[in-house]
Structures are given as C-alpha cells and as structure tokens.
C-alpha cells in the first residue's frame, strides 16, 4: 500500500503493517502552506544568490539547484519570516496573508 493511498477513511486492512511507511519523504504530500498568515515575496532582481536564506528555513521551502535558489515552495512555506530577516539585500519581503 502506497502512502498516498492511505487516508483517514482507509479500512483496517489497508493500514500498513506496524504503521511502517515503505517510502521516503511522504510528508511532501501534506501542504503546510495553508498555515501561512504572512507570505515571503522573492525579488529575483535584488537577489545576489548568497544563499544565506537557505539554511535558516525550518521547512525546506527554498529550493536550491546548482548553487542558485528558486522561488519559494508555497505549498509548504509557513511564512515564519526568518529568511526575510537574514537577507542582506532586501530580496525577500513579507506581505500579510497567504
């Protein structure tokens, strides 16, 4: 049974033995972006790709590829604002709401 096929309506026969999950990183299917009360906005122009924002994200929501960051993963970003505070170039601003 794949984790995506298990939900709160699954019959007992479909619950994995011992509640084990046989795939990695299934939490990706759960969208914590819903929780946001404020949202970081990424200004690519201002970004110098220093990546100081990347390790401070508690939600692995700043995708980095080949040494460069991309826009936020809004499916998961909870809007804590740590990244905006550490950006030396003002490339991240927080706006109210989702």
């Amino acid at each position: 049974m794949k984790s995506t096929e298990i939900n709160e309506k699954s019959p007992w026969q479909d619950i994995t033995e011992g509640n084990k999950i046989f795939e990695p990183a299934t939490s990706r299917h759960f969208c914590t972006g819903e929780w946001r009360t404020s949202t970081p906005v990424f200004d690519e122009e201002k970004c110098k790709q220093c990546l100081l924002c990347f390790p401070v994200c508690p939600d692995s929501s700043i995708p980095v590829k080949d040494g460069k960051r991309d826009d936020f993963d809004y499916d998961h970003c909870k809007g804590c604002g740590i990244c905006a505070k550490v950006c030396p170039f003002g490339a991240i601003t927080m706006k109210e709401g989702k």
């Binding site: 939490s27 990706r28 914590t32 508690p58 939600d59 692995s60 590829k65 040494g67 604002g81």
Partner: peptide, 23 residues
C-alpha cells in the same frame, strides 16, 4: 557547495512556523 547538497528533510512536517528544531 554545502548548501547545494541534496535536501534530506522533506517539507510538509508539522513543526511550528519558525521552529529551530528542524533547522
């Protein structure tokens, strides 16, 4: 180089916004 390594903690966990634990 270090920041470009593959992420090993996926998003979608339920820690509070701004939690130091997952950092």
């Amino acid at each position: 180089e270090v920041m470009s390594k593959e992420e090993r903690l996926a998003p979608g966990h339920r820690m509070c916004a701004g939690c130091g634990g997952t950092v």
